[in-house]
Simulated assay, not measured.
Amino acid sequence: MELQFLGTGAGVPSKERNVTSIALNLLDELGVYWLFDCGESTQHQILRTPVKLSKTNKIFITHLHGDHIYGLPGLLSSRSYQGGVTPLTVYGPAGIAVFIRQALAISGSHLNYDLCIEEITSEGILVEEQGFVVEARRLEHRGECFGYRITEPDQTGTLLVDKLQHEGIKPGPIYSQIKQGGAVELPDGRTIQGEDYVGKSIPGRVVAIMGDTKPCQAAIELARDAHVLVHEATFASSHHEHANDFGHSTSAQAAQIAETANVRTLIVTHISSRYQGEDVDVLLSEAQAIHKDTYAAADFWTFRL
């Protein structure tokens, strides 16, 4: 599982940062990519990464501001020319269907795959796929905006090899059967219960990806005990009033959310174009003063869980 940052800027693109888009690499787990937001030129950014549109089967839109959706029509159309024939589903607030359908119709675009658009009408679980769960909650921004929590299924615990060998059960194909649990008949005629020889299950990883938001309780709940929280940090603390007026967060506020929610790693993104070059260090240092394990995302940067 890996996060690939395609665009990390806020509002408008700059020379250093394109507008918002993040790809979640689930090739090892599900054989696909999931995309979160799709700002203008997202498909151009993808060309510079390993991300494959043909293997992208879900797009989650946080809200309908242009810097989060203007790249959708072009990307959906280009997917047909890049071998994309499998169904794709777009999730987003009310209005996303009209935007996509009209843009494709007016431009005469033809898709070689089935496109499903699901508008989010209530909070809760959106997706359950092979044990993966995606939950959505409303955040506090100008207009309806959602954050997403992605939870991986728990993994089977490690095989207790020392215990098996102590009881005279030698290595071989029988070990695979034991790890699956249930009754297992041994070559010597004994029957054992596989779960007695497997350690505690390993909790699945949790990734929380926020849309634009001022600090709110929903963000804390989505991020609770997450391995990684991706949170906007549009401004430094010196502009906290401006951030509040426009429904955004400072980097320090994002860090406080991470601390309150007991998050392991915080990644701040959606950074205003006023912060160029080393100016971003101000945002990062303010966040790290509150939550030490914090990174500032940059375009084309990846984070592997």
Rank of each mutant, 00 (worst) to 15 (best):
H291C: 04
E221I: 10
N112C: 04
S14L: 10
A219S: 06
G31D: 12
F246E: 07
P173Y: 14
Q180P: 03
A255Y: 07
E259F: 04
A261I: 03
N57W: 14
K163A: 15
F99H: 10
A223V: 02
Y81E: 11
H227E: 14
A233V: 01
L30S: 06
A23D: 05
R274N: 15
Y148A: 07
V90C: 12
P215R: 08
P203S: 08
D293L: 07
S273T: 05
G66E: 03
Y197M: 09
D188Q: 08
D299C: 04
F300K: 14
S201K: 06
T42R: 08
A255H: 11
G181A: 13
A252F: 03
E167M: 12
D28Q: 13
A255I: 12
H240M: 07
R48N: 09
S237H: 13
D162E: 13
E2R: 14
E259P: 00
H68K: 13
P173F: 13
G182S: 09
L64F: 01
Q217H: 05
S21T: 03
Q253W: 04
A233H: 10
A105P: 00
L284D: 08
P153T: 02
D28Y: 01
D225N: 14
T265I: 08
Q43G: 00
L88D: 03
G9R: 07
M210K: 02
I46W: 03
G157Y: 12
A208T: 15
R205D: 07
T42S: 08
R79C: 03
I46S: 01
A94V: 11
E152A: 15
R79T: 07
L6F: 01
I174A: 05
P50E: 15
A94F: 04
D293E: 10
T49E: 08
H44Q: 06
E119Q: 13
T213C: 12
L115P: 10
D196W: 05
S285T: 15
S201G: 01
V230C: 01
I271S: 13
E118D: 02
T89V: 10
S249D: 10
Y148T: 04
L160Q: 14
K200H: 08
G71H: 06
Q4P: 00
L76V: 11
L139Q: 03
P73Q: 06
V19F: 06
G66H: 05
A183G: 02
Q82F: 11
V19P: 03
L6V: 09
F132L: 13
G147R: 11
Q193D: 09
H44K: 11
E259N: 05
H270I: 13
A252I: 05
G168V: 03
L30K: 12
T302R: 12
S80W: 05
V263T: 08
D114K: 11
A252S: 14
V12E: 08
A296E: 00
V133M: 00
V133H: 00
I290V: 15
F36H: 09
E167D: 08
E286T: 07
L64I: 11
L222I: 09
P187E: 12
E195T: 04
H231C: 09
E185A: 09
A254L: 12
H291L: 04
